[in-house]
Nucleic acid binder design. Sequence first.
DNA 1: TTTACTGTGTAACTTTTGATACCGACTAAA
DNA 2: TTTAGTCGGTATCAAAAGTTACACAGTAAA
Lengths: 210, 210
Amino acid sequence: MIDLLKENYGFIFEEKLLEEIAQVSTLRTFEEGDILIDFGDYIKFMPLLLSGAIKILREDFDEGELLLYFLEKGDTCAMTMACCLGETKSEIRAVAETKGEVVMIPVAKMEEWLGKYKSWRNYVFNSYNNRLKEMLMAIDNLAFMNMDERLYNYLLDKAQINKSDFIQNTHQEIAYDLHTSRVVISRLLKALENEGKIKLHRASIELVRS
Amino acid sequence: MIDLLKENYGFIFEEKLLEEIAQVSTLRTFEEGDILIDFGDYIKFMPLLLSGAIKILREDFDEGELLLYFLEKGDTCAMTMACCLGETKSEIRAVAETKGEVVMIPVAKMEEWLGKYKSWRNYVFNSYNNRLKEMLMAIDNLAFMNMDERLYNYLLDKAQINKSDFIQNTHQEIAYDLHTSRVVISRLLKALENEGKIKLHRASIELVRS
DNA sequence: TTTACTGTGTAACTTTTGATACCGACTAAA
DNA sequence: TTTAGTCGGTATCAAAAGTTACACAGTAAA
């Protein structure tokens, strides 16, 4: 595992910290669609993402969800840290967007290292800051943009995360992520196709780069 | 200043830290309506709120704003910390909701103390967590609630922050905070009055507790 | 090949929100 | 007491989004 860590975090953490991480952590692999964290789960480990992508969702009071943001290689989940330190239940759901690997760090260690390693402290703070920024972007989307813009941004995000201009999702799945109905998504996708921005296929959407 | 600090933060920070804060920080008082931080400002100080309340706003791309959350005694602004550490411009505007006092801590010190004082570290992390939670609530409001619910929650928040069931705002001011138009607010307020939840007066709204 | 299911397109209608316009009441300064 | 400005109520219309219903094509299992 130490090699995997060095490869991904070698330029951020010092040797000693990498060794400590390798000693106390476990490696976990996951497949697309796996629910890594669910609403109300108690968090005992802090995840460091080595490969793959994860999407973070917020739950509606009654029913339905909303996509908050994606995590990629090198990211960790600040919402999870929040739960670790606060000893509270998870406020979010984490679903694997692709297959990948995470390093699971025990909560106690993560706190210990905060006092011990400056690089760890910086990393944790940067993660918080990145997450705050993503949340701000989510708020911008919700407050200032119409559904058609939100949808197009979503498609761009998806393409970037999956490194492919073919988005393999049904309209229904997209509707869940954007917290709206399938009919609305179909309508707006058709409009985007008429504008020449995308091409629609069955269960997949092709981004047209102009 | 040391006395003020002890009064508000004595049970959180150890004596030595309180003394350090008192040595390097400056006290700033502000009046209702003062703009404490504006979009694009460079942040050189981290504010600790001693008294009063501050509202944090997000800017629209073209025009208009959106209320994110309020800060109260004992709070600090995590968005500001984010800017401090990232050396970037402010993403938010901070406007005094009431008169009050803040302690301004130089950025360099706040970083130094992170390694030095466990209580400081805990405080800073708790602030981040609280802010993340407030952002989540803002997202919940935007994504899952209609304007009438958002408006009523806003009134409840206002009442709590100002410790009064009389909200001294014009419909136009409320419209700015909720990023909608004055007409919509007037319409929904009238509906709330008809439901018996509030009473409308000129430039003020009275909450009716049932 | 029949059958059942999934995914998409579309029409018709409702609700929510936003935009414009105008009026009357109140307020404060001239 | 004029007068100008602020504040709120309301009517009308338009746009955005949500709801319901149904048709049809592709897919996969029986």
